[in-house]
Design a binder for these strands. Structure first.
Lengths: 351, 351
DNA sequence: TTGTCGCGTGTAATCGATTACTCGCGTTGC
DNA sequence: GCAACGCGAGTAATCGATTACACGCGACAA
């Protein structure tokens, strides 16, 4: 592959001149044309590795996501990439597979590669490595998932209002026994969602007792299904379930269907993250939609502020409730007793 | 950030010695311990940019995929990443967004970054850039999508046998008016799937006329839905539809449901690519499963052969039919046939 | 004419690692 | 006792770019 020296020789100038022409610092048309001609003839492309070594800038951002096969994260990654590209950066995506250890591994690798900045949707609670690189001054921004005690800007969605709307929605539809499936204990995100939901229900006199709070160690369908199984085995099973991650919701749906129960007739289901797939299920699922693409964009901008040495603030964007049919329709017959599970076939074809 | 010189000073040795210790070329315990102590105290990490410049190896592979939000590609990417990591490489994922131009952009960027080799799931037909870098000798392997006239190893699935099984399946269930939704004309993959399917149907005396061949420019639900609309408006609508991409199948399902029709009663539906989501639909969809993770693994190995200068062959792995309930009564009510989980996956997917 | 200034280029240092070559010292063999 | 050999470790070249500094030439003013 041709290097800058080859170009210089061919154009009959020095390497410095070539560099200057390529960086737009040489206003002289005559030499510029000669250089550009040589570049074209040789198919020369600057070696980014060498350039990065000299300038201490790679032009790459890192993004660490929890799970590459989780559509929420891929939409996020897609948005981040779009934004980064449009601002002249390229993006290196690291997939933690929801494993803190693999996440640390990735962070190390990215830092060793000297990316200019890092976005982290952290798996689990904050790792020592994360603290270490934050302390070392690497531009760092948290995305979607906050980490307690880490003094770093965080870009995420605020679900408070949406959860309040959901509580109202449940109340209006006569759902009195809600349940929630949350991510592993100890993560800030899961704890927040639980707390906000519980607080939102209180004004309506609706309880969210611990027996209807289920948590899974992994954000996977398996975990969601297991929790739902526990819920449905309760003496008083819930009549509405909020899954705080889309993959867990998927597992929950499986369990509901496997028991021959129906959504929303027997149990309402709401999913956190409005991934496209849930618009295609039967019935379409009511969702709490995070402004995924905006989050991605905001995160990139915040990170660039940090990279350019400016202080950067955390960003909170509102999530909103997207009501679909999985909680039933509001209407006169929306109160039902908990005894008649599975005997409601005639109630279904409303609209 | 500490560099090798700092370590050398602290340990009272030369930089060469530090380098040798870190690369395991210095067997003397005394100096090694001193160096390692200095490394630990300073928290030194080798600068990969400098190392890459000197050694002309970055230890990174590139993967270009068609669409980051398509679960087939993310599963593929996940598998490629796992394998690359386990072999000591890191992976840079580029998302073409199914746009040839963005794909070319990405390839350029990756080459400029001097990745050691590139895997490409090409969008559209082969681009000039692809030919150019192949000619320039960059280790290159095509993944999933072949490109005509490009003399480069290709790792992909062979759907012939699975499509033959599907034809038999249709015949056994009395489906006599099949249809197919294919990717844009001009792509090798789409053309192959159409041809093999048609050939497979012939022995059973089943026709696949052009009016029941629909193609969409984009691999998106919208396109699938539009094609399905056309099918259902035919005087003789199909009684079985094969969608050759999972997102198109999703759109097709929407249209079926929007008309109040039922799967499989009114129309059977089969999807190419067995992404986890379709195991959770109602009914679970019969699928042609590509050995996604194996494809990823094989692609990495093939690429490494090329990187190490050995000649490498193309790889064809068999796809298989996974009958579920979306074509009507198959064999034993397939909660999960033994085909359902081909490999020693982690617990992703249904429980 | 001569000194100065400006400007376009070239020379060479630099980024942080790897590695060929060299040097010096200790051991061994004759 | 001296030469040769082995081996550990240092010196310095190198990768391909950027960029501070120096230089030389033409223009312009005195």
């Amino acid at each position: 592959m041709a290097n800058i020296k080859d170009v210089a020789e061919r154009a009959g100038v020095s390497v410095a001149t070539v560099s200057r022409v390529l960086n737009g610092l040489s206003p002289v048309a005559a030499t510029r044309d000669r250089v550009l001609a040589a570049v074209a003839e040789l198919g020369y492309r600057p070696n980014n590795v060498a350039r990065a070594l000299r300038t201490a800038r790679t032009g790459a951002l890192g993004l660490l996501i929890g799970d590459l096969t989780n559509p929420f994260f891929t939409e996020l990654a897609d948005a981040v990439e779009d934004e980064a590209r449009s601002l002249g950066y390229s993006l290196v995506i690291g997939n933690a597979g929801e494993s803190p250890q693999q996440q640390d591994d990735h962070i190390r690798t990215l830092i060793d590669r000297r990316i200019d900045g890092l976005l982290v949707s952290s798996a689990g609670t904050g790792s020592p490595v994360l603290r270490e690189i934050a302390a070392a001054g690497t531009p760092l921004v948290l995305l979607d998932r906050a980490v307690d005690g880490l003094d770093v800007p965080c870009v995420r969605a605020d679900g408070r209002a949406a959860l309040a709307d959901l509580a109202a929605h449940f109340a209006a539809l006569g759902r009195r026994r809600p349940a929630i499936i949350v991510a592993p204990a100890g993560t800030r995100t899961g704890a927040d969602r639980l707390r906000f939901f519980r607080e939102a229900l209180r004004p309506y006199g609706i309880e969210l007792p611990d027996e209807r709070v289920g948590s899974t160690p992994d954000l996977q369908p398996t975990g969601g299904r297991r929790v739902m199984r526990g819920f449905l085995d309760l003496p008083e099973p819930p009549d509405a379930v909020l899954a705080t991650d889309n993959l867990m919701a998927l597992g929950a749906m499986d369990e509901i269907r496997a028991r021959g129960l129906r959504v929303p007739d027997d149990v309402a289901l709401v999913v956190y993250d409005d991934v496209p797939w849930f618009r295609h299920t039967d019935p379409p699922l009511t969702a709490i939609a995070q402004p995924t693409r905006e989050l991605g964009r905001a995160a990139v901008h915040t990170l660039l502020e940090r990279i350019e040495g400016r202080p950067a603030e955390s960003v909170l964007l509102p999530a909103r409730l997207v009501p679909r049919r999985s909680c039933g329709e509001a209407g006169p017959h929306s109160h039902r007793s908990h005894h008649d599970r599975g005997h409601h076939d005639n109630e279904r074809g409303s609209a």
